[in-house]
Nucleic acid binder design. Structure first.
Length: 420
RNA sequence: GGAGAGGUGGCAGAGUGGCCGAUUGCGUCGGUUUCGAAAACCGAUUUACCUUCACGGGUAACGAGGGUUCGACUCCCUCCCUCUCCGCCA
């Protein structure tokens, strides 16, 4: 959610920003109008209430003294009626304004390239060489030899779910171990094990509700949602809290399954592991001081890159343009890994700075030592990494002529041997 | 699934119709003291909106919404949330 003060004071900046994100620029005018109305109504009802308060006091005293209260009582009943109308107006206006604010995406950082589609994304960095493989094969074919059980998975759960038996299941676990070990032992993250089902308000806080309801799995009886990413529970760790400035930054990492309906993606990537209703991801999450969040964004992205370098996978870092980035963030880098079998760059990580957009919705603040006021923290998160994209890349890029798959050194200790 | 208790400021926890925006303790910040620190003592310390050049002043908010009342933190109703006990269970 955007700060209404910012909208009021810098309407042009905000309008440009949300339009660049593909949002509706006219929302700015509506917000300003409603905000103005709201403040007028507030003053109005406040004055009425002040009068009521004062006269009620008089009334009490007069009654005790046995004076004539009839006239005052009439005045008070009058006030009461007026207040009822005023209060109705006020709540309606508040709701309207809230709805408009909920509809607005974040304002992108000024350095983010303006654009409407992936075409305008900017590759800011590349690492590693694309391996030469004699007879490249897609991972779903290679995987068959290592326990990729597409049909059995579909039989019990339908399309879009994975069953791994043996080597791939173990590889999945090895990857998670490797990622978590790096984050907790080298990068200063606190490991979190968190709920996989959350209440609606938690999803509202991170921005997945109300706008992206159709993308979520919902357990209706309990009104709980399966998390689409660990971002949701990790960000909500400090929801409704006021942190000490000295507590910042706070860094958490955790692995969770992620559940997504992929409603709009019917037909795309139906083969293989790349797009499923359930996948596993290790997430990095950071609560940061506003002055340091962009620096932190670089470090966080770098943390994800180091994992890829450890896995010896060629990647590029892409700065996502305004129109292609997700609604809640202000700046987003994606990391893409090349997989030779499908001959495509696969998105393995998405690292974002949300500034105070989520913090405002989740009410995560800190007491600022300079202003002396409670200010919203900045939240950042990034995948580090998603196994569902890493496994295909490892299988395809490291396929040996004899059909075995070589594993990068970094995984040997976690997997227990050097090949699948 | 059954029974009970409760939601108040950064935290803990008083307040049971007007005298309460709220006693007190802890924490935090500033000061005194000290070579420095601790302790002790003194003071400050919720938020939003309106108003003022400023100092300041005003109004509202005690989980949310509704009701009773001239007047609600306080009484009633609904909802949300938390905790405790019993049952079941990995």
């Amino acid at each position: 959610m955007l700060d209404i003060k910012r909208i009021r004071e810098k309407p042009d900046e905000v309008r440009e920003g949300i339009s660049a994100k593909g949002g509706d620029g006219t929302l700015v005018e509506r917000a300003i109008e409603l905000d103005k109305r709201l403040r007028e109504l507030k003053t109005q009802t406040e004055n009425l209430r002040a009068e009521q308060k004062k006269k009620s006091g008089d009334f009490g005293r007069l009654k005790k003294e046995g004076g004539d209260i009839a006239k005052l009582q009439n005045e008070l009943n009058d006030l009461k009626a007026k207040l009822a109308v005023g209060d109705d107006d006020l709540t309606r206006t508040e709701k309207d304004l809230q709805a408009v604010l909920d509809d607005m995406p974040n304002v992108p950082h000024k350095d983010v390239p303006r654009g409407t589609s992936a075409e305008q994304n900017v590759v800011v960095k590349s690492w590693g060489d694309i391996p030469k493989i004699a007879n490249p094969k897609p991972h779903w074919e290679i995987g068959k030899a290592f326990g990729f059980e597409q049909e059995r998975a579909s039989r019990m759960s339908g399309a879009g779910f994975q069953l791994f038996l043996g080597p791939l299941a173990k590889l999945e676990r090895a990857l998670i171990q490797y990622f978590l070990h790096e984050h907790t032992e080298k990068n200063g993250y606190t490991e979190a094990y968190c709920p996989f089902l959350v209440r609606p308000h938690a999803l509202y806080g991170t921005g997945q509700l109300p706008k992206f309801q159709v993308e979520l799995f919902h357990a209706e009886r309990d009104d709980l949602y399966l998390i689409p990413t660990a971002e949701t529970p990790l960000t909500n760790i400090h929801a409704d809290e006021i942190l000490a400035e000295s507590d910042l930054p706070k860094r958490y990492c955790g692995y969770t399954p992620c559940f997504r309906r992929e409603k709009g993606a019917a037909g795309a990537d139906t083969r293989g592991m790349v797009r499923g209703h359930q996948f596993t991801k290790v997430e990095m999450m950071e609560f940061q001081h506003p002055a340091k969040s962009y620096e932190a964004h670089e470090t966080l992205t770098r943390n994800a890159e180091k994992l890829l370098e450890g896995l010896e996978l060629p990647y590029k870092r892409v700065l996502i343009c305004t129109g292609d980035s997700s609604a809640a963030n202000a700046k987003q880098y994606d990391l893409e890994v090349y997989a030779v079998g499908v001959a495509r760059w696969l998105e393995v990580s998405s690292c974002s700075n949300f500034e105070d957009f989520q913090a405002r919705r989740c009410k995560i603040r800190y007491k600022d030592s300079v202003t002396g006021k409670n200010e919203f923290v900045h939240t950042l998160n990034g995948s580090g990494l998603a196994t569902s994209r890493i496994i295909p890349a490892l299988l395809e890029n490291n396929l040996q002529p004899d059909g075995s798959v070589r594993l990068p050194k970094a995984l040997h200790a976690y997997y227990g041997k050097a090949t699948l």
